[in-house]
């Protein structure tokens, strides 16, 4: 009994040991660096904690998280809604493909300068840009996921349900497309996070991204790295949140599958 427990413990900890080794390497490299461009990890983390304890948390960091979250949710909701329409009514496809292919190919960061010029560096502008970033991958994957649903499912749905498009869509097509929609959401989240940073670093005069850039310009390396660490933590937090929600949603989904079959 003892041996397997020991093994499973080492299995779990080996990953963290590797992380610790990487952190140790940063620390050593930082201490040996004479140029002052690469502060040791311990200093960066101390600075990070200090920032997190200051009012920057409520003034800069939490608003960033809120904007990213709001933008991601809005953009995904719009992406799924439009995706269902475009995926289900195939007659639209030949007309909409070309314009959509063009629009989605415009990298969303390229719209930031225009958006700043038109609407200023405001919260709604930032949320809108983040939403647009999430929108495209979610839209494309929803359309694709729905189009790829096995026609056999749809046929049997026509037999066993009332046969209305709406009930087939809700009870068969959407569940079947869920894995691919989830893939789209995951990509959308990654792009949302990038846009969160771009929208804060470009043309802003306050906020976390602005502080990081400012530190870089002033060669305040420790606070620059601390800012990067905080941005990374925000990304980590939101990704973890997404994974948790995904897990709950999926277990509900699996449970439903188990009940109806």
């Amino acid at each position: 009994m003892k041996a397997p427990t020991f093994r499973s413990v080492t299995h779990r900890s080996v990953g963290w040991i590797f992380v610790l080794v990487l952190m140790g390497l940063w620390e050593i490299a930082g201490r040996r660096d004479a140029s002052g461009l690469f502060p040791p990890l311990s200093e960066v983390l101390t600075e990070t904690l200090e920032v997190l304890r200051s009012d920057a948390l409520t003034n800069d960091i939490l608003p960033s998280v809120a904007r990213a979250l709001a933008g991601f949710v809005l953009g995904s909701a719009a992406g799924i809604a439009l995706g269902v329409v475009l995926g289900w009514w195939r007659a639209l496809e030949p007309w909409t493909t070309a314009p959509l292919e063009f629009l989605r190919a415009v990298p969303v960061p390229a719209l930031v300068p225009l958006a700043v010029a038109l609407y200023g560096s405001t919260d709604p502008m930032k949320v809108g840009i983040i939403a647009l970033g999430a929108f495209w991958p979610v839209l494309l994957n929803t359309v694709d996921g729905i189009r790829r649903v096995d026609p056999g499912y749809i046929e049997s749905a026509r037999v066993y349900t009332s046969g209305s498009s709406f009930s087939i869509l809700r009870r068969v097509v959407l569940p079947a497309a869920t894995p691919q929609i989830t893939t789209g959401l995951r990509i959308g989240l990654a792009i949302s996070l990038i846009l969160m940073v771009v929208s804060e670093m470009f043309g802003a005069s306050s906020g976390l991204g602005y502080l990081v850039l400012q530190s870089q310009r002033l060669y305040a390396m420790t606070s620059m790295y601390a800012g990067v660490v905080i941005l990374a933590l925000v990304g980590l937090l939101l990704t973890a949140l997404f994974s948790a929600v995904e897990k709950r949603a999926m277990s509900w989904f699996d449970g439903m599958k188990g009940r109806t079959s």
């Binding site: 996070l193 990067v228 941005l231």
Partner: peptide, 14 residues
Amino acid sequence: RPVPAVALVPVAIV
């Protein structure tokens, strides 16, 4: 993985 790459712009400039 979740670290948004553009957050590293300052680091990359340095």
